[in-house]
């Protein structure tokens, strides 16, 4: 009886020591390899992923981890010190800079591309163009029925992103509040808050009453992008790369990477790659708008 107990504990001990030594070896290997943690905006997660893949193909020891979750998530991670680069589709806020500085972190901003936000509906929806004011009134809940816009007598279902999304913040600040910092206008509380742009696309592709906003990279045959005029009487402009680059399309925004420090060589090299001609070509390939004509 006692004998067996001892034998078992010897075996267990063997496993334990073996397990430990293997684990510590792995840890040592990890510390030697170079790694970058990137977190933030779902909008550009695919773009940054592509940059990281292209860039790290030249250097096998480079280890880049990328997670989405929304621009706010990325900033929270920078402030809490759990990532090296935050991806964002809005600029960082004063309060967030202050919080980061409280933790001795000085985020540094790089503008890496542009994105047009399209207002989308189901292709079965007869509405093709709206003024910016009409869009604003729909999202604030002042226009409630498609018949007010020349459509069928159906209630408008407003789709928005969750409040941690940079897309949500940008749309609120630039369309709902018209860029006025003092404005307190909000999305209608009846707006459905979707967890991702893909969720908005999914609902719109099967619901003719729904209307939402996503980046122009999400365009597909199941959607229809609304042409937008800045104000009544202006020309209606469809969202595409050319109209965003020439600033004719009214709802476009910069895309940012925020580094947690200026002196991390690995991070700087990756960002330099993103800003290079080759990196900017990737921007275009993924249906975002590059910083300059290539």
């Amino acid at each position: 009886m006692k004998n067996r107990v001892i034998r078992i504990s010897v075996v267990a001990l063997c496993f334990l020591t073996f397990g430990c030594s293997k684990e510590s070896r792995d840890n040592a290997a990890l510390a030697k390899s170079k790694s970058i943690q990137i977190k933030g905006s779902d909008t550009i997660v695919n773009l940054v992923q592509k940059w990281a893949e292209d860039y790290s193909s030249t250097d096998a020891s480079l280890n880049i981890g990328i997670t989405g979750g929304g621009s706010g998530t990325g900033f929270a991670a920078i402030i809490n010190g759990t990532c090296d680069i935050a991806m964002s589709s809005r600029s960082i806020e004063e309060a967030e800079i202050k919080q980061a500085e409280g933790n001795k972190i000085h985020p540094f901003e790089y503008k890496v591309g542009l994105d047009g936000l399209m207002v989308i509906v189901n292709p079965k929806n007869p509405v093709v163009q709206l003024t910016l004011d009409q869009v604003r009134n729909i999202f604030m809940g002042n226009i409630k029925n498609w018949k007010e816009l020349g459509g069928p007598d159906k209630k408008i279902v407003i789709l928005s992103r969750e409040s941690n999304s940079g897309t949500h913040m940008f749309f609120k600040e630039h369309v709902i509040r018209k860029g006025n910092k003092k404005s307190k206008d909000e999305f209608s509380p009846k707006a459905l808050l979707m967890s991702s742009s893909q969720a908005i696309v999914n609902e719109i592709s099967q619901n003719p009453n729904a209307l939402g906003y996503v980046g122009i990279g999400y365009m597909s045959a199941e959607l229809k992008a609304i042409a937008i005029a800045k104000k009544k009487g202006d020309k209606f402009v469809s969202p595409d790369i050319d109209s965003v680059l020439s600033d004719k399309y009214p709802i476009s925004r910069p895309l940012f990477l925020y580094a947690s420090s200026k002196d991390n060589k690995l991070v700087n090299a990756l960002i330099a790659y993103a800003l290079s001609d080759q990196g900017q070509k990737t921007v275009r390939k993924l249906d975002f708008v590059p910083l300059r004509k290539l």
């Binding site: 929304g70 706010g72 900033f75 929270a76 809490n80 409040s163």
Partner: peptide, 9 residues
Amino acid sequence: AAEMGETVK
């Protein structure tokens, strides 16, 4: 669940 990830501690 939707908002916890974004908040600053």
